[in-house]
Design a protein around this nucleic acid. Structure first.
Length: 609
RNA sequence: GCGCUCGUAGCUCAGAUGGAUAGAGCAUCGCUUUCCUAAAGCGAAGGUCGCAGGUUCGAAUCCUGCCGGGCGCGCCA
């Protein structure tokens, strides 16, 4: 078991404060954090200011007394009071080396997460018969990264790809395909897209939905969506409803045809997932149809608890602190997506026993998830069957914008397909690799076209994913491929490049020699070591906040710290073999951590690039 | 109308629980290096943290009110 140096110092300070203030030390928070300014030391404790005030003592004097009464057990080289009462702490090199030694093993000092129950992550959110587009990009890669993060920390994860594979839109497409006589065994995604669009076009002549939107003072998005979908069209809706009814009754031949439609969509979806290097396959599909037989009982359960009441013929759940109710059954008896989501919530919490349920769905659905979570709490699905409290989280990510700062569209105004986006990324990544391979000094110079293409794909895809994950999720971001694929700055390729250079260095250095001790003489060596020690903390911090950009930022800092070290500390050329071994080990640990971190982000790390 | 969300350098973005002079990257300018290395590294400049109040020893961070952008608002998903 790895003992964390930060924890040790925190505890020492707690005891110091406890002795001076004559209170139980366990409840004291010394507010220990990394120093912002390197000149101040390695860590700083800010607790004396607040505690001094609360106990009627001068913060500076308190801090000084605390230092006198704190036994750092040889970990600390110096500790001194500064400013209004900061305690600045500098570690001994021995303490750093010891800690570094402890974390340099295979697991890189990563400790398991404390959670004992599985985590369910709703991600991707594809719709059958509809091509993947930009909107699916974020729901997919953010979800996959969070899943990888939990898995890295030893948690069991259910990736829940909640397919839109049921309901009227699907029935419309199915009806359309059957009536146009398409052979479903030879169905292509292209056919599906045409059928989808045609079924939408059929609904063009009824604008009741649009008028309703106007009357409700709906926002522009809602308006456009209704205009696009026009779900109110009478004739096609009647036909589609008949198909849906037959499906729901369990009509066998229709059901077979429905499955073919799904197979066709999913083949293409999984191909994209593969290209994106995302772990989503058939085993993660649990679509709306999975819950179709549970919907009635879910509504009944809410009725029985008096949580659902009738309103204008529909069943709604009301909440104490807001006007807006949640509609769970239509006046014609039909169910809505909210009903399906409730059924899924019950399944995830009560059957899968997840104590953390995460929804990676864009920010526009905030209200819906607020309702869903509150309804789940009302009915009692906020505890697992064995009594563990459940945490519900919606990750409300922002939109991907074009250069005009409006949601990304093609020149003709249609939404950008995921396929075309990925193709562009791969093209740019490959161009970058080929350009660099022209240099005779580059190790990629002698590579075949195919090898370069593989690396180009890894770079292009990595660039997109890193750009997406590296900023605060709730914010919109402008999609700028040239910036994403640059080898400079806070980008995926920059980090991949550092990793490749380290691989190259280790190859030339003949790998790492067993148990050579770490020697930290130069400031850059020390800084690098200190950075490496934080890896475990960063992973836990990232999972705590569910914010992948924390890991990205840290990896970028690590990469810069390493570059600085590599620039000023000769490795192979050094005349002292002990220094050579030590520096090779520093490079080795850095390289493995970068690769491990990239793995968590779902980004491949080419050996050469 | 009601609600949610975002606003930090020219651009793209970091800034847990309030802490020291608000930090990176790109772009700009300057410097170093014929190097073990796959051309990077170092430094400078650049800021009314949207605005105005408030809370306190101390606010980009917490509270209130404005301004501006985005989004959402019962029988679609």
């Amino acid at each position: 078991m790895t003992i964390n140096i930060q924890t040790s110092i925190t505890q020492a300070l707690q005891k110091g404060f406890g002795a001076v203030l004559e209170t139980p030390w366990e409840s004291i928070d010394p507010v220990l954090k990394k120093s912002q300014n390197q000149e101040h030391g390695d860590f700083q404790a800010n607790g004396a200011m607040g505690l001094g005030k609360r106990n009627g003592q001068n913060p500076r004097e308190l801090a000084e007394k605390v230092i006198e009464h704190t036994d750092f057990d040889g970990l600390v080289e110096s500790s001194e009071v500064a400013g209004p009462g900061f305690i600045n702490i500098r570690l001994t090199n021995d303490a750093i080396v010891m800690q570094l030694e402890a974390m340099s093993g295979e697991c890189l000092g990563v400790t398991p997460d404390a959670g004992t129950h599985p985590v369910a992550i709703d991600l991707c959110g594809v719709n059958v018969a509809k091509q993947l587009h930009v909107g699916h990009l974020r729901a997919t890669i953010i979800g996959d990264t969070l899943a990888r993060l939990f898995e890295r920390l030893g948690r069991k994860v259910y990736r829940e790809n909640h397919l839109g594979d049921w309901g009227l839109p699907i029935a419309m497409v199915l009806e359309r395909l059957i009536s146009s006589g398409v052979d479903l065994d030879l169905l292509s995604l292209h056919d599906l897209n045409i059928a989808y669009k045609d079924s939408q076009l059929e609904a063009r002549d009824d604008f009741s939905g649009v008028r309703a939107a106007e009357n409700l003072q709906s926002g522009p998005h809602r308006f456009a969506e209704l205009e696009e979908q026009n779900t109110g069209a009478l004739e096609s809706q009647t036909k589609a409803k008949a198909v849906l009814n037959a499906l729901q009754r369990g009509d066998e031949s229709l059901h077979l045809q429905w499955e073919k439609l799904i197979d066709c969509t999913m083949r293409s979806v999984f191909a994209s997932m593969d290209l994106l290097h995302v772990k989503i396959g058939p085993e993660h599909s649990r679509g709306e149809s999975f819950y179709r037989d549970l919907l009635g009982s879910v509504v009944q359960e809410f009725k029985d608890s008096n949580l659902a009441v009738e309103d204008n013929g529909a069943m709604v759940v009301r909440f104490k602190n807001r006007e807006r109710p949640m509609l769970i059954q239509k006046s014609d008896g039909g169910y809505l997506y909210a009903t399906t989501d409730l059924a899924a919530m019950k399944f995830r919490t009560q059957t899968l026993c997840a104590d953390t349920v995460i929804y990676v769905v864009d920010a526009r659905q905030r209200d819906h998830f607020k309702d869903l979570f509150d309804a789940a709490k009302l009915i009692g699905w906020d505890k697992t069957p064995d009594g563990e409290p459940i945490e519900f989280v919606h990750i409300p990510f922002g939109s991907v914008l074009g250069e005009d700062k409006k949601p990304l569209k093609t020149r003709s105004g249609s939404s950008v397909t995921l396929q075309s986006l990925l193709e562009e990324a791969i093209e740019k990544g490959t161009a970058e690799v080929i350009k660099r391979a022209e240099d005779p000094k580059s190790p990629t110079h002698t590579m075949s076209k195919e090898e370069l293409a593989t690396i180009g794909r890894q770079i292009g895809i990595g660039a997109i994913k890193y750009a997406d994950l590296s900023s605060d999720l709730v914010r919109d971001y402008v999609f700028d491929m040239d910036r994403m694929v640059a080898f400079e700055g806070n980008t995926g390729p920059y980090i991949q490049y550092a990793s490749a250079r380290i691989s190259s260095l280790l190859r030339k250095g003949g790998g790492v020699t067993g148990v050579a001790p770490f020697i930290l003489q130069e400031p850059q060596e020390r800084l690098l070591a200190l950075q490496l020690l934080q890896y475990n903390n960063v992973l836990h911090d990232t999972v705590k906040h569910l914010e992948p950009h924390r890991l990205c930022t840290w990896l970028f800092e690590l990469t810069e710290t390493f570059s600085s070290f590599y620039q000023s500390c000769p490795v192979l050329k050094n005349e002292d073999p002990k220094i050579v071994s030590s520096r090779l080990r520093l490079a080795d640990v850095t390289g493995r951590i970068i690769m491990d971190g990239l793995q968590v982000l779902g980004i491949e790390a080419p050996e050469q690039m």
